[in-house]
Simulated assay, not measured.
Amino acid sequence: MKVTIDSFGTTPSGEIVERYILDNDRGITVELITFGATIMKISTPDCGGNIGDITIGFDTLEEYLTKNHHFGSIVGRYANRIEHASFKLGGTTYHLDQNNGKNHIHGGSHGFDKYVWSAHVVEGKESASVIMQHISPDGDMGFPGTLSVQVAYTLDRMDTLTIDYSAFTDAPTVLNLTNHTYFNLSGELGSDISDHVLTVHADDYIPIKENSIPTEEAPLPVEGSTMDLTMPTTIGDIIHKKEPQILYAGGLDHTYVLSKSHDNIVRLAAMLTHPVSGRSLSIATSEPGIQVYTANNLDNITTYRNNVHVPKHGAIAFEAQHFPNSPNRPDFPSTTLTPEHTYTQKTKYTFNKVITSCNVK
């Protein structure tokens, strides 16, 4: 296993941002930067052995500073939405940064994706890790308690990238962390993902209102609905349907229920395949839900890596997390963290080739 470290630039405040490149000597590389604890780039081989970039990102730190939409970053303190940007905990009402209309999303306008994290490397024969750390002060974006967060990215020789999260607080707070990497397995950024095939191993999902807040009756069974992805389904057959849940989001932007109680068991959540390239990605997580987002807000105007324009539905994100608005929904698995407990999460991305007959040259 190889780890390469270099400088990726300096922020306007003078903080040095480092880049770490993990290489498992099997054609898979993962590039990370300390700004936002971000997965900047993942490259994997197709069925013909050609190495391709399968994630969306930028070439420069300046672009991450000015054009970032959580591409590849750690999202916190609270991934997804909190209705009315407020919640009650221990008899006190906390008011958060309103950055999604009247609601709060992804930790606010200056969430974890906007900080430079500290980092160090742990190397072994079969794997290598980059461990990143950040301290969020009491009152950060309105959240109570000083929070210490650690995220370890580990690439191994079994072609798996594991993200291990841990956190502790000095006062009761709420916490919901995720990584927000956007994937396009074709290796041709700028194409859409309509030809990708998706399976989500969930019998229930969280329906949303027009403002993307969960409905009162959530969760609901996927059986008999457009949201049923329990069998392999071509993404293009879903995201253009004229039915309310798809129209509200402009595609998929929904949490699928993997467990109705947070049992912390790592289970297979989803699989994405691209039949043409033969690439496959499986996601397993200890989280009770996974948000599936088909990049409904990309505009085909912003330039990304290699000066590429990415269209709407040009990628897909799998955000392992708790359910949206959980601090205001006692019927959902709790996101409360107290000083007596440590937050932990494990999410695994495994890269495979699934096509036995390959037409790629």
Rank of each mutant, 00 (worst) to 15 (best):
191 S>N: 14
279 R>W: 08
314 G>S: 02
159 D>C: 11
109 S>M: 07
141 M>Y: 02
64 Y>I: 09
315 A>C: 08
169 T>N: 05
242 K>Q: 15
140 D>H: 15
150 Q>M: 15
318 F>T: 00
57 G>P: 09
229 L>N: 07
48 G>N: 07
290 I>P: 04
319 E>A: 02
256 Y>K: 07
195 D>W: 00
313 H>L: 05
106 H>S: 10
81 R>D: 06
193 I>S: 10
99 N>H: 07
331 D>V: 08
195 D>S: 11
339 P>K: 01
48 G>D: 11
253 D>V: 06
260 K>W: 01
352 N>C: 10
15 E>H: 08
109 S>C: 07
161 L>P: 04
92 T>G: 02
224 G>Q: 10
252 L>K: 00
208 I>C: 14
73 S>Q: 14
147 L>V: 10
174 V>Q: 08
311 P>F: 06
298 L>H: 11
152 A>Q: 14
165 Y>M: 03
23 D>K: 08
185 L>N: 13
241 K>F: 00
155 L>P: 13
18 E>A: 08
38 T>Y: 03
221 P>W: 12
242 K>F: 09
280 S>A: 15
250 G>V: 03
209 K>G: 15
175 L>I: 14
323 F>G: 00
97 D>S: 07
206 I>H: 05
183 F>S: 02
308 V>M: 08
68 N>M: 12
186 S>R: 05
46 D>P: 03
194 S>Q: 12
242 K>Y: 06
28 I>D: 08
